[in-house]
Structures are given as C-alpha cells and as structure tokens.
Amino acid sequence: MWDYTDKVKEYFFEPKNAGVLSDANAIGEVGAIACGDALKLMLKVDPGTERIENAKFQTFGCGSAIASSSALTELVIGKTLDEALKLTNADIADFLGGLPPEKMHCSVMGYEALQAAVANYRGEEWADDHEEGALICKCFGVDEGMLETAIRVNKLTTLEMVTFYTKAGGSCATCLEAIEGVLARSNEKMVAEGIIPAEAAFVAGQVEVSGVIRKPQAAKAPAPVSDDFVPLDIFNEEIRAAAPQPKLTTFQRIKLIEDVIEEVRPALQRDGGDCELVDVDGNNVMLKLTGACINCQLSAMTVAGVQERLVERTRLPIRVIPVKAPGH
C-alpha cells in the first residue's frame, strides 16, 4: 500500500471538480502510455481578462493521478493564464502534502495537461517532450529516461558525475548498481556513435561500488567532464560551511543574483541556449530560459543547477521559477 498523505486520500475519495465542463474553451489532453495514465483538463477562460473561471477534469489513472488532477483544478481556478503557467508539478505535489517518488509522474501529467490546455486556448500546438522510464532513484525520483538524457547531453562517464548532475544515487545509494547499468549501456551506445572515445566509457564492474559512497571531498573536487562545468558538491557540508555568510542589502542581493546568472550564461550559450533574469521577489528568482533551453528536456535540471549555484553563493533559500515572458 502506498504511503499517501491524508490530502491525497481526500482528493481521491472525494475529488473536487471531477467531470465534464461543457462550456470549456481550453482543453488539454495528455497521457503516458507506459504508465497508463491519461488526463483531460477542461478550462473555462474569460477571454477579456484571461482569467480561469472554472476547471474540471477526467482522469484514467491511479489514486494519486486522480488526486493530482483534482488538485490542479483547485490550483488554477481564479488564476490568469500567465499566473497558471507558472505552476510546476512540484506545486501540485506540495498542494497534496507530497507524493511518493514513484508517483511524482502523476503531478507531471497535471503540469503537462495545463500547458496543453493553455496552448489549446491560444491556438498553439503543444508537443510533449517528457520521457519516462523505469524509476531508478527512489529518493530523488529520477527515472531511466532522465538519466540517459543527462548522460548523453553532458557526456557523463562516471557514477559520481551522474549523481552530481541528476542527484540519482545521492541519498540511500541502493540504486547505484542500477545507475551503473544505465551508465554502461548509454556509454556503449555513445562510443558506437562516436560521441565519446571508447577508453572514456564506463564499464560496469571496474570500480569498487563500495568506494563510490560519498566521502567528504573538501580538498579535491572531482574532475569535470567538460570544461564549462563546475561540479556543485551539494552533498558536501564542508564546502557549504566554508562559503562566506554575507549580510546583504536588497540591492546587493539582487546584484549578486545578477552576477551569478551572468556567470552561468556562457555555459548555456555554448549549448545554444540562454537565460534572462526577469524579476526578483523576496527569495523567488524569476528566470526566463531562451534559445535551445526552451523545450529542452534538461531545462528542469538547468533550473535546478542555477538554483543550487544561487543558494551556494547567496546563502539564501533561493527558489528559481522558470517563466515564459519577461514581466506580466
């Protein structure tokens, strides 16, 4: 039996806004064939104000899929389309008091349905680029597709780097063997395609798994695989403790945030992407991803990476929120 929160149970047993919305003018239909989930989100949008006046859903899926869909409708009613688009799957999960890692894809489905519904309203074509596979790291909810993409795009060849990029295996470490398998398979394909040299490829069984468990590494950061990447040792308390503890004015804080964003831009630009600081509201940093970053499967990782760096540099609980348009 899943460890569902009371809120998930409440929204499954007594779902709000279930059913057909006959006067809907924005409809999003998404599904994940592997998981067997499918969601139809129906919105009634006021054309003048672009405010969502009503929302209903129909869901084919498990308890948490139904609860996530219902939570989504509660979250979007009363918001303008632009406000609603800022919602992420994490907001849906948070609204429900959390979801088991295996079930996070249910909240992703809600996020996608919302994107699809807004695209439908605006007469745009929405293409899903979310890939799913077997869940590998249960602690951080990282699935096989996400690992493969991270390994391929960043040319990762060690278990350690995979953990740095994706967090997978960074907590209980029971999935290290499974990560090794994905890494070895991906590297083998990459060697065959000439993406990495054969001698760089990871081969399972050639490192001591017991030695991979994270040890404090204050003195020596692991060798980066590409020169534009500086690993963030998010597991290393010593590095965090050693960082300066600034007392910043609002101006200094925003200036520092700007500086950090400027620092990460060259790395993004090298991959054909870019980002732009839109606004700072307290500890919320609104960031607009542009160029190749739009629709990039790794955009969530990019955002997480920028956030980690901001947190490290400012020593503040910064939250990076990806936004579509500058200002609103």
């Binding site: 239909e29 998404v30 599904g31 064939i33 969601l39």
Partner: peptide, 12 residues
C-alpha cells in the same frame, strides 16, 4: 459506454 475516438491524448 466508451467514448471511442473522442479522447486522443498526446502520449509521452
């Protein structure tokens, strides 16, 4: 009954 053909979600 089943709503045949009416519901065609975008699949991942």
């Amino acid at each position: 009954g089943p709503s045949t053909g009416a519901f065609q979600p975008t699949y991942a």
